[in-house]
Nucleic acid binder design. Structure first.
Length: 417
RNA sequence: GUGGCUAUGGUGUAGCGGUAGCACACGAGCUUGUGGAGCUCUUUGUCUGGGUUCAACUCCCAGUAGUCACC
């Protein structure tokens, strides 16, 4: 019996986009959907009730963090992810593979998984080498068997293999989990991307094999089944992406993650390479994306779910989404703005508080600032993706895309002049 | 009233006879499968007047202000 089922309700004619739903043991996810990130089994600054009230359907936590603290033993003994964090809806866990990147080649550097602009992403390689020679050593080492890494908390050494990731994720007990993969740097050359991708494919097989064994144990214990998503890699290279989608798509996963690095400007193109190949009837999650403009490209090209730390992280540092672009609530212009952040926004923060008050809370580092700004940003993103879903159902996707982006991008364009 | 001490960006403080650092605040930006409720950058100053010196934020005198002690 499959752990989840995916139903396509409407397709975007002439493109890969679709609206649908994922049935999980803890409820339905109407797609496209933004999955709220709760790395450490908590959405920072928010209670689960607040997360639910702002419209979130599901939460994604992280294996690496929960393994280090509180640990898989306590996660399991506490009744699993849903119970320990008091979230009754669907959940995901990321495999911990991303941390091989963020604690490895990217550690201590300003490398993002996205490369920007027209550059090919290679030009900053020398600078990074010099940074590394100044004493920043990677916190993780990758071998065929897995990833050896140091805890960011106390420096102690740990080892993740595909099998180990599956075991930990089983103990955490989310509805949807991911195969253990390697996320590569945008600055890595094609040769490395290829070898990392091949390794990710071997790890995918190992993840799946171990997952099947663990599912039998779960079934014997009378516990709800867990769905496993395989992760497609291949960096920014069309041939590698297609090869990866073929390889991963042919395996018996319940759905797919699309991971790794992209050129920011053509996420849509890269995603379409993959989604043309992946089986249509299974859900596709785009890992770690994104910003408002990213969703239109990714959904148009066949992605169903997303997660991203940006809405909550930038909120905690005072950056807020509005229909007219991002604003910095700390800025002087909001000191005496006795109106909501956005007049027609119906989020809790905008219904009850002025920009002047939230700016004051943010500037003075009051804890409530994090709560209110996180609510606003998550509400904005969750409802944006929900609006895109509705536009698919109503056959108004392209009109909605055009009108939203015209407003959202306009402000940035004006400021850059 | 007498005596001592002090006076440096918005605030709190370094410093040296050759023209000022730091922290916070202010102003702006960054953040894409959360190591870090974090990071980066910018603006702003030697109490007033006189003297010594090639050169004074630095030494001297006076004023002003603050502060402590005594009366």
């Amino acid at each position: 019996m499959p752990a989840i089922s995916f139903t396509i309700q409407k397709k975007l004619s002439g493109a890969l986009g679709r609206a649908g739903k994922i049935d999980t043991p803890h409820g339905v996810i109407n797609t496209p959907a933004f999955i709220v990130v709760g790395t450490k089994a908590t959405v920072k600054a928010l209670t689960p009730e607040q997360v639910k009230d702002l419209g979130a359907q599901a939460v994604l936590a992280n294996t690496y963090h929960l393994y280090l603290e509180p640990g898989e033993k306590i996660m399991k003994a506490s009744g699993g992810l849903h119970k320990i964090m008091n979230w009754s809806g669907p959940t995901f866990t990321d495999s911990g593979g991303f941390q091989a990147f963020s604690l490895g080649v990217a550690f201590g550097k300003k490398i993002s998984k996205l490369s920007k602009g027209e550059s090919n992403g290679f030009e900053s390689e020398e600078k990074e080498t010099s940074v590394r020679s100044e004493g920043l050593s990677p916190m993780a080492k990758i071998t065929e068997d897995g990833v050896l890494f140091k805890s960011y908390r106390d420096g102690s050494e740990h080892f993740f293999s595909p099998e180990k990731s599956m075991e930990i994720q089983n103990n955490i007990g989310a509805d949807i989990i991911f195969a253990f993969d390697e996320c590569t740097s945008p600055t890595a050359d094609k040769e490395y991307q290829k070898s990392a991708m091949d390794r990710t494919h071997r790890w995918a097989k190992r993840s799946l094999d171990r997952h099947i064994e663990l599912q039998k144990e779960l079934q014997a214990e009378g516990k709800p089944p867990i769905a496993l998503f395989g992760v497609v890699q291949g960096g920014r290279f069309e041939d590698l992406r297609i090869e990866s989608a073929k390889t991963i798509g042919a395996m018996d996963f319940d759905g797919f993650g699309i991971g790794g690095s992209f050129d920011k400007q053509d996420i849509g193109t890269a995603v379409s390479w993959v989604n043309r190949v992946l089986p249509e009837g299974k859900p596709r999650h785009l890992l770690g994306i994104g910003e408002p403009e990213d969703f239109f490209l990714a959904i148009e090209n066949g992605c169903d779910t997303f997660d991203c730390v940006a809405p909550t992280r930038i909120a905690r540092n005072g950056t807020l989404y509005t229909k007219h672009g991002k604003i910095h609530i700390d800025n002087a212009e909001f000191r005496e703005k006795y109106e909501p952040i956005e007049k027609d926004c119906t989020c809790y923060a905008c219904k009850h508080y002025t920009a002047a008050y939230i700016g004051y809370l943010s500037r003075t580092k009051e804890l409530l600032a994090h709560t209110l700004t996180s609510i606003h940003n998550l509400y904005f993103i969750v409802h944006l993706v929900e609006d895109i879903r509705q536009s698919l159902l109503n056959d108004t996707f392209y009109e909605f895309k055009k009108s939203f982006l015209a407003q959202y991008i306009k402000k940035d364009a004006v400021e850059n002049k």
